[in-house]
Design a protein around this nucleic acid. Structure first.
Lengths: 333, 333
DNA sequence: TTGGTCGGGAAAAACCTTTTACTAGCGTGG
DNA sequence: CCACGCTAGTAAAAGGTTTTTCCCGACCAA
């Protein structure tokens, strides 16, 4: 049926042990060049691939990493996942998908997968919900866990340079001549704090007062509400830094609903660049963050931990946040 | 270390075989109610979960399904994946992620995963590229494979009701009073044919001639080009059915570039509804297709095959395509 | 010759389940 | 009293790797 290591051994005229050690490059093995060749060609001829299950059983390593995210349909996560995917593949690992909300629904499938050793480690993107806490508890007590873009806890984590991105965005608006610059923060997560900090610090350094602040969340609808809040006061900001591109989409709608033209009456810049941003009206100016690299960094961190490394928290600064100028920012009218 | 079936057996005062058979509900097992309870409580107390690897090795079933897509960052695929995810979880299966383009890069990781029995079956979303053909060949000869939204081949597949969706879109435009209705087809895939067919048939039945046809691809940029092509002739269409929502985004840009106002000078309706569609200018009228259900259906199909079923092709008609009226369609000016 | 060392590989255990075949004990009918 | 059948399990094999220990022959030095 399947070709096993014994078949290869027979074909090469050696024992299975030798095949295993040759194929895995065991440095303690003494073997003649000739024999090694026989093994290698036999393996190739028979198109041999070791049984995932048997190997996992014996070595108690599944070469699999779990990946749990909230919303697959969010292109931001898609980007992160692709980065993680690639890094994992390059390291010979494979990615197992889990849906956080499914897990929280009391899914036995995931718990069994974690406990049963189906994955060696877990990448977790959380959003601060109750479901998250449950998952974190279930998983992190059993297998190494790395948080994606989050650093509020004692767990290992890979995060973006939120402060830097926020500074870049705010500085862009300042350079255009804006003074009254508001911020739509994410709310609820640690990223929220860092992004708000970059905005606040940059304004303070420029001698401006960071007065306009509202929660924009990370969905279109929450962004719309937040923007309305920001525009409600008697004195309005002339420019806004949105903590999330989806919130910015909603903010654009809110501006329109308030009778404000973007960018003539109000400039808007958002965190994260997605293809759609270029096709909104007006095209959205954004700060592109290295999402791909974030995913890769998280995987690297996890692999490190699997090799016995300590829990670390890293900030992905390479490549640095990049300003993508489009049509939603302009000098104040 | 890990708690194994032997530990549970010892705690319950029986042999491992009994534990296995009780936990898996072996109907041929004769066991006293009392003994069964002892086993069950022991398993619960020890928080036992069977080893994924050992079980896979013994039963040569990994309870894992592979999922290979092109572009995770595309929200359409995200939607499909979420549907697949859920259906798989409900059936006790877990999803393994693979990136087609990585695979085609000559990745050994995936080939080893397939051959090593890391997955029982594969869900494959292909786009007609050379990479696809390679993957299909590697995989489908070894494990059951189901195609997502594609039915051009001999393989099992789950597809959308493209003709129905296309009819719905075209009829909507006809009802608004349009006669000169064009189509931006996908190009390259079998879906292309079906969607074009729905458009053509509906027009013909209404006594109109299906004259305006161009390739819109499935990216923003190709959609833009296709739309320009459609608008190039001396006599222009007054309305267009776009085969893909991303192409429609590009088409919107193309219309603007041609100095045409949507919907006043040109109506546009697109396949697939995504949240962004509502926030374009103008908000895009779409036909929402059951993507979630498509993913679930594909999983069902795959599980069927794993249980020895025949290769089938299904069309997901439930829920039926749904018209989402927004601002990009209007009676002809 | 003997003792020692080294090269080249063999043997066997262990990893944890599942499954098939089998059995000890007991009651029952003939 | 014996054969039989039933209950309630038991025993053992199998699945494919990896890894540690072990072994045999050859060569070298004394």
């Amino acid at each position: 049926m399947r070709v096993s290591i014994t078949d290869v051994a027979r074909a090469a005229g050696v024992t299975p042990a030798v095949v295993s050690r040759v194929l895995n490059g065991d440095p303690t093995l003494q073997v003649r060049e000739q024999t090694r060749d026989r093994v290698l060609t036999a393996a190739r001829d028979l198109d041999y691939a070791p049984s995932h299950a048997a190997r996992a059983l014996r070595s108690s390593r599944s070469n699999t990493l779990g990946l749990a995210v909230h919303d697959m349909a969010n292109p931001l996560y898609g980007e992160i996942i692709m980065g993680a995917q690639r890094a994992a593949t390059d390291a010979g690992y494979v990615l197992l998908l889990a849906d956080i909300d499914g897990l929280a629904r009391g899914d036995v499938t995931f718990r069994r997968a974690v406990q049963g050793g189906a994955m060696d480690g877990l990448l977790l993107q959380r959003a601060g919900t109750a479901a998250d806490r449950k998952i974190v508890k279930t998983a992190s007590s059993r297998i190494p866990t790395v948080l994606l873009n989050d650093r509020s806890s004692a767990l290992a984590a890979a995060a973006l340079d939120d402060v830097g991105g926020s500074r870049l965005a705010t500085r862009h608006l300042l350079e255009l001549g804006h003074r009254r610059i508001g911020h739509l923060r994410l709310g609820g997560t640690s990223r929220s704090g860092a992004r708000a900090r970059g905005w606040r610090e940059t304004l303070t350094q420029a001698g401006e007062e960071p007065r306009w602040l509202a929660d924009g969340g990370h969905t279109i609808e929450t962004g719309r509400q937040g923007m309305h809040e920001l525009l409600a006061g008697p004195e309005r900001p002339t420019a806004v830094v949105a903590g999330n591109v989806l919130a910015a989409v909603g903010a654009l709608t809110a501006a329109r609903e308030s009778g404000l033209a973007v960018p003539d009456d109000l400039s808007l810049i958002a965190f994260h660049d997605i293809p759609y941003a270029a096709h909104l009206t007006p095209p959205l100016t954004t700060v592109a963050m290295p999402l791909h690299e974030l995913g890769a960094a998280a995987v690297t961190l996890l692999l490190e931990r699997l090799d016995g490394g300590k829990e670390r928290q890293v900030v992905v600064r390479e490549p640095p946040p990049r300003l993508v100028e489009r049509g939603s920012t302009a000098p104040p009218g």
